[in-house]
Nucleic acid binder design. Sequence first.
RNA 1: UGGCCCGUAGUUCAACUGGUUAGAACGUCGGACUUUGACUCCGGAUGUUGCAGGUUCGAGUCCUGCCGGGCCAGCCA
Length: 576
Amino acid sequence: MNATSGDDREGPTSNSGTDFIREMLKQHSSSGPYGGRVQTRFPPEPNGFLHIGHAKSICLNFGVADEFGGTTMLRFDDTNPETEDERFVEAIQEDVRWLGFEPEQNVYASDYFDRLHSWALELIKKGLAYVDDQDAETISENRGGFTTPGLESPWRDRSVEENLDLFARMTAGEFDEGSRVLRTKIDMNHENMQMRDPVMYRIRNQHHFRTGDRWKVYPTYDWAHGQSDAIEGTTHSLCTLEFDSHRPLYDWYLEQLGQGPGRPRQTEFARLNLTHTVMSKRRLLQLVEEGHVDGWDDARMPTIRGLRRRGYPAKAIRDFAGHIGIAKVNGTHEIELLESFVRTHHNTNALRRMVVLDPIEVVITNWPVDDDGVSRADVREAINNPEDAAAGTREVPFSDRLFIERDDFMLDPPKKFFRLTLGREVRLRAGYFITCTEVETGPDGEVTRLLCTYDPETAGGQAPDGRKVKATIHWVSADHAVDLDVALYERLFTDPHPGADGEDPLASLNPDAKTMKHAKAEPAIGDIAPGDVVQFERLGYFARDLDDDPSSVPTLFHRTVGLRDEWANIQKRQGS
RNA sequence: UGGCCCGUAGUUCAACUGGUUAGAACGUCGGACUUUGACUCCGGAUGUUGCAGGUUCGAGUCCUGCCGGGCCAGCCA
C-alpha cells in the first residue's frame, strides 16, 4: 500500500470507481502498452502552500495508483527559480504526509535538467528547435490570434550549427535575460496556439534553490513536464482541465524524442472549487499579504495547514475527495458537503466536553450547606463519547454557582423554544433537573443572573417519578471553570461564488469570519492535547490550537464546525 | 472571432457503454427516537436529462443544428 497512517485511516477512499480515469486504468490494466503498470505523480510547484484543491489531486493520484497496484511520485515542478523556494518543498512534503500519503519517491524536475538539455540538443539537430532572438513582446505579437495565423520568426531557419552555438552560449550565460529563447519549430499556423513554436528554454540569471547557479537557461512547463513524466516512468499523467490544449504538445515532444507507445499519457480532470472561499494561489496570497487572515495556516484558509489548524481530519478530507469523484466540468462544490464529512468523522471519534461560550450565571438556591456552613461541590459522572463506550467517563464538578449558555434562557420565549425560562424545568446534562424561579436583570433589562432550584432526586439526569423535560442544556461549575479563548468561524466569503459576477472577489470577504470568545470550560478540558478535536456539547467540534503549550491548561480552541442546528433553522424560518 | 472540452434534482456526481416509473450523497421538508434541537432511523418534495430535429421497436446514452458555460494568443504552472 502506498499510504501511510497518521490517523485512523483504513485505506484510500474512492467513489464507486466508475469515473473516466478509473475506467481507463481498468482497461490499461488488462491490455494496452503499460503491461498493467500504473505510475502517477503529484507535481506541485514549490511556490506556495497546498490547499484543498491540491488535496483532491493528491487523493486522486495516490488513490488510483494504490487501487491499481501502482506507485506515486511526489515531483516538484521547480522550473522557475523566480518564485520557488525550499521552504515550500518542506511544507508540501509535510502536508502530503499529513493527508495520509507516502510518495514512492520525492523527485524534482530539476533532477532532469541535464537530460532535458541533451534532449533539446537532439531536437535542434533534427531541425525541430531554434534559437529566436526576438524579445517576448515581439514573439507574443507574432504568435497571431485565434483567427489569424502567426508570423514565422526571422530566425526560424538558422542552421543547426548556429542554433547549437547560440544555445550553448545561452546556456553558458553569455546573454541577457529575455534576449533569446529556444523555441520548438512546429507550425506558426496551427489552430492550437500551443503548437505555434512554443518556447522551450528561457534565460534566467537567477539562483535556483536546488541547482544553484549552474543553469542560466530554464525549461518551460511544457518542455519539462512530459519529459519528466517519461524519465521517471509515469504512465498516467493526471492534470487539470486547462492543460487540455497542451496535450497535443505533450504528445508531440514525446513522439519526436522517439518515445514508444508505452510513453506517459496525459488525462485531464476538473479542479476543485468550493463555495464561500477562493482557491487560486494568487487570491490566497492576497489574503495573507493584505492581512485579511493571519497567515497561510490561518484556520479560515482552505489550505491544508489551515484546515488542519481548524480541526479538519485528514480522513474526512480523503472521504470528501473520494465522494465528489472527478469530472470534466469545472463546478463548485458546496462547502457543506465537506463539513458533513468532518462532522461524521468527529461524531464517532471526538470526546465530549461541556463549554459555555457566552456564560450567564445560575445560582442554585436550594443547594445544601454543610454543617460547617460551607457549600460543597458535588461530582457528577459524564459520558465521554456516547458513540464509543471505550472512551469511558469523566468527573464533572457541580456546585451552587454555575454558568449556562445565555442563549439557553429566554425571558419571553417564542412558541418553539423549549429551553430554560422562568418557571420551567430543564435538565443539566449529566447533572440535575433545575427550575428557574427568579430572574435578576440589569439597568437595561438585560438578564444578569438566574436563580434556580434543583431536584436532588434527579441526580444524573433522571427523575424517579418519570417526569420528562423538553430540553437538556450544558453547564459549567463557576468556581471550577477553566477560562478559554475560543475562535468562532463563519464563511470566509459571504458570496458562495466570490468574484463570479466579475466583481472583486474580496468584495464579499466576511469581516466576521472570525470572532473571539472568552469561554468557560469544565476542568476535564485539560485532558485535551494540542491539535485534538473535541465536541463542546451541543455547540460543535473544536480543535485545541496546534501551538498551544502542551504542558499547561488549554487556552485556545478553534471551532472546526458547528453541530447541525435545528433550532437555528426554526429561527430562520420564523424570520427572527 | 477560430479551435478544443463540457451541459443529468438546489449542489456535486451515478445510470452496467441504446433497454422497464433517471438514482445517490449533501441540502431541504415531515415524522420516530433521544440525558446533545446532535447522532441514528423512516418518509416526502424538487428533473420537460440545455433546446430542436433525426436514426431506432426503444435515446440521458448515437447523428446534425442551435443555445449556454469553460479553456487557449506568458519567456507562469
